[in-house]
Design a protein around this nucleic acid. Structure first.
Lengths: 346, 346
DNA sequence: CTGAAAGCGCTTACAG
DNA sequence: CTGAAAGCGCTTACAG
């Protein structure tokens, strides 16, 4: 029954030697190793990682918590992390965290707490979550991507700087009537600390620095293509006030804005400039100017950091710190100097 | 050290009783159970699933193989499967299968083969893969979603019927110049057995049944929004031949077509009707007529089937069979009777 | 209903 | 370089 024992017997060695030969740990003569490997493949030996984990304490398994799968940023991060983990021989166990509070408790306190993971990656979990859940109590390395609970290190872009960069691009083109589209309606402290809140705050600071009125620049929008479209239809459909430029909190929102503009007969960029954040796969086909980031790299980088820590036993686990990944302004055809406005034509 | 022993001692019972109290298996007096539960939470006991798996043979973990994460169908299936598994107390271990052959071997023969999973779900793995890899040799329940290697049961829509349904819709509107956009360029046997090949074959059969010439109706397109756009720009940009309708193999391709048409100044549906397959989240905002399916339900259903088998030890594992999920024609504004063609206006 | 004991399939000091 | 033995943290017949 004991599979390893069968291999050992067939190879004419002890279980200990068979184990060493197969795992590559410890000294084994070339001869013995060859016999063991041959016996293993002859028998069709498949290892039981559980048994090994039980004694070594290592699971070669990382838990990943993600709030969305079918949104571009999250899907890309997940692909990047999966690839990097696989390359290191690690499994990725996926938890899709919904808004349901019971769900959160179950994932955080039950699934993640069990001794099944060497480390945990939390994607897009906002700082304020630390009020109800501290990953530190898991007692294992944790890292956030995009955002992270307070006190947990993270890999992300500088959202404040990205917001300012987008604002600067529009200001430099001569826009002053700019609206930020994205995130919740309430600008409570929690929201201001979130990814989209930080993008807004960078944007607002840049406006102020340029001497442009910065109040009431925020229109809420669900962070998705339909969400961007809906918000833009409401915003642009109101003839009393129409901005000359929109800064969308994500490319998905920005593309929704462009589609809404087309539907309303508003020319982009002549009558409306649109800039996003992401570097979405679809950005080129819509000519979208954007602040480009590389979520796959963020996923990969987070795994690298985790691996460094898991390998070097001397390292301090969960040393706080934020790894800032680069962004870049990519100018396409959705932004230009403010031109004619339909209101003025009519 | 032995965590369960600590709990047992604190509760004044044996490890056996503590185990029974915590797992809910076997008889335990209410009194003992309460003491054990109290002791466990006082100590902060966290179970080691590995140890339990080692003796029971159950891992409460399902391996999921998926070729893409950031495509709508696949993301939805994954969300549906994840939710269903979580509700059953199962973990989902994710493997993103790329085109790299080394990758395939590693995932199929190493990662999936280990005794870490109670069952395996393969998403969108085409029939011909069975020539190089048979899931049956895993010796555990396997199920496919969307497609499945030969000999493996699956949950999917009837792609042939869906293709015919789309064709019938266009034929009924009066179209005869119809092109199918999707899938590879080569129509080899392998491809014809794939999801998009089956959609094409249903489409072709329907044309023939209606007495409409069915040869050379297939234009290759990468299955994505940019892929649909590129293919449509080439197809529609050639003035020598322009169909009055396009049947896209997926909604992503269809939306790409609509965007290409806009860019070329071709009116949809007046000059070009477009129909897709999926029921993508973005379909409504583009007014896309489509054959709607529900990938989340497919993910959920596959988990149900697996759970039924894992629960009932009497059940025959891997009994072949295809579970067909319903589709529905959803008519929106992207299809109409064929009207004026730009070529004719000029 | 409860406990002592064996054992799940491995790995790892330890002694040789 | 190799093997006998102990043990990782649980569960499960078995006998009571």
């Amino acid at each position: 029954m004991n599979a390893l024992a069968d291999v050992a017997r067939a190879a004419g060695v002890s279980k200990a030697t068979a184990s060493r030969a197969l795992s590559g740990r410890g000294y084994v003569s070339t001869d013995a190793r060859d016999r063991v490997v041959a016996a293993a493949s002859a028998i069709g030996y498949v290892a039981s990682p559980n048994a090994a984990s039980l004694v070594t304490g290592q699971t070669f398994n990382v838990g990943v918590v993600i709030p969305f799968i079918n949104k571009w940023f999250f899907g890309e991060v997940l692909e990047g992390a999966e690839r990097a983990l696989l390359d290191c021989g690690y499994d990725l166990t996926l938890y899709n965290l919904t808004d349901d509070p019971d769900d959160r408790d179950r994932i955080f306190d039950f699934f993640l707490a069990r001794k099944r993971f060497d480390a945990v990656i939390v994607i897009g979990v906002e700082p304020h979550v630390s009020r109800v859940w501290s990953p530190l109590r898991l007692g294992k390395p944790v890292i956030g991507i995009g955002a992270a609970p307070d006190g947990i290190r993270s890999v992300s872009i500088d959202d404040v700087a990205a917001g300012a960069l987008a604002a600067d691009h529009l200001l430099r083109l001569g826009h002053t009537e700019i609206v930020f589209l994205g995130g919740d309606g309430d600008e409570g402290d929690e929201w201001l600390g979130s990814v989209h809140g930080r993008r807004l705050s960078g944007f607002t600071s840049a406006l102020r620095a340029a001497g442009v009125p910065a109040a009431d620049r925020h229109w809420p929008a669900e962070i998705s293509l339909p969400g961007g479209m809906d918000a833009a239809l409401r915003l642009l459909g109101d003839p009393r006030y129409r901005p000359t430029a929109i800064f969308a909190g994500s490319d998905e929102v920005a593309i929704g804005v462009i589609i809404a503009a087309r539907q309303l007969g508003i020319l982009v960029p002549a009558e409306l400039s649109v800039i996003g954040i992401d570097g979405h796969d679809y950005a080129p086909m819509f000519g979208l100017t954007t602040i480009e980031q590389h979520p796959r790299d963020q996923g990969r980088r987070a795994v690298e950091i985790l691996m460094g820590e898991l390998g070097a036993s001397a390292a301090v686990p969960n040393e706080p710190g934020a790894e800032i990944m680069p962004v870049r302004l990519v100018t396409r055809s959705s932004t230009s100097a403010p031109g004619l406005r339909s209101g003025e034509i009519v």
